[in-house]
């Protein structure tokens, strides 16, 4: 059975990965053998300088999901490269490094640092960062997305993945802009802007006032977005949004995603990515598929 997936020149042994920001120290829970079952590891987004993150409360539970406003707490790219990356590389699983920045120059500086770090499978650009010139996120502006992708593509020796925000009118248009600027893949979707109010205190449940919704609650919207986008672009899609089991993941693959990421549900069931992989393979066997490409985008219209 061939379940390997290619993004740019990088090959991933299988299509199951983890969404950035949802897979931290949980490697402590697995044997190395289990970690090696992942198609890729995507650690939490890093920025040029360390960020301390948002004040508590940073998370709250919602119906079939959660809202988070972590604020990209991270030690900065230098510490990441020196202290975290070596351990991740040692697992032997391809590492997709997620980066974000407040300016194109910072993105570029980080891409150069990653070039020097070596042996990375791909760079994922978390474009849900403020676009300083306009009052929107980079991922909400096709031109800004195109510009960042183009700049990083010129610098990076690794494939470049653009991670898209669902908080837009037409996500396929942003995906097309990323593709036209040379992106090797798009990752979709990030969290949906959301809030939850404690009626008793008449306060937001989130310290940052608003946050991002994730988990099974967003899955049907994410699947629709992947399906719409897959019909318009040729580069691979890494699909995510509320995946809890193999069936959920199959929805994304059938809709047109080439890889799938388990995010929030890692917090509920740390074994979910493993179960997803096993389930996908069982489904392929049952349906006499020998290549994952028979599955990807196989939605009947």
């Amino acid at each position: 059975m061939n379940i390997a997936v290619k993004i740019g020149k990088s090959v991933f042994p299988n299509p199951v990965t983890v969404a950035s920001g949802t897979f931290g120290h949980s490697e402590e829970l697995y044997s190395l053998k289990e970690v090696r079952c992942l198609g890729a590891i995507v650690p939490k987004t890093v920025t040029l300088k360390a960020q301390e993150g948002n004040p508590p409360r940073r998370i709250c539970e919602t119906p079939a999901g959660m809202i988070n406003a972590i604020g990209i707490e991270n030690p900065g790219i230098d510490v990441f490269i020196a202290k975290k990356l070596p351990g991740l590389k040692k697992t032997g699983v391809p590492v997709i490094v997620s980066i974000s920045a407040h300016s194109e120059n910072d993105f570029a500086l980080m891409a150069q640092k990653l070039n020097a770090a070596g042996k990375i499978a791909a760079i994922e650009l978390n474009l849900s960062c403020p676009n300083l010139k306009k009052k929107v996120l980079v991922a909400q502006d096709a031109a800004a997305t195109a510009s960042v992708v183009r700049r990083i593509k010129r610098i990076s020796k690794y494939p470049v993945i653009a991670k898209l925000s669902p908080n837009v009118t037409d996500i396929a248009a942003i995906a097309l802009a990323a593709e036209a600027s040379g992106a090797d893949a798009v990752s979709m979707v990030n969290t949906f802007a959301a809030m939850s109010i404690d009626v008793k205190r008449r306060c937001s449940r989130i310290g940052n006032f608003t946050g991002g919704l994730s988990g099974p609650a967003i899955r049907p919207i994410a699947v629709r977005m992947v399906c719409e986008t897959a019909a318009k672009i040729k580069i691979p899609i890494i699909g995510m949004g509320g995946i809890t089991n193999a069936n959920d993941a199959l929805e994304f693959l059938i809709a047109g995603a080439s890889m799938v990421a388990v995010g929030t549900y890692n917090f509920i069931n740390p074994k979910a990515p493993l179960e997803v992989l096993i389930g996908i393979m069982a489904y392929m066997k049952e349906n006499r598929m020998t290549d994952i490409r028979e599955l990807i985008g196989s939605i009947k219209r």
Binding site: G21, T22, S26, K44, I59, P270
Partner: peptide, 9 residues
């Protein structure tokens, strides 16, 4: 959420 130091929540 995670209880594992993964989400920083």
């Amino acid at each position: 959420a995670c209880g594992l130091g993964a989400c920083l929540g």
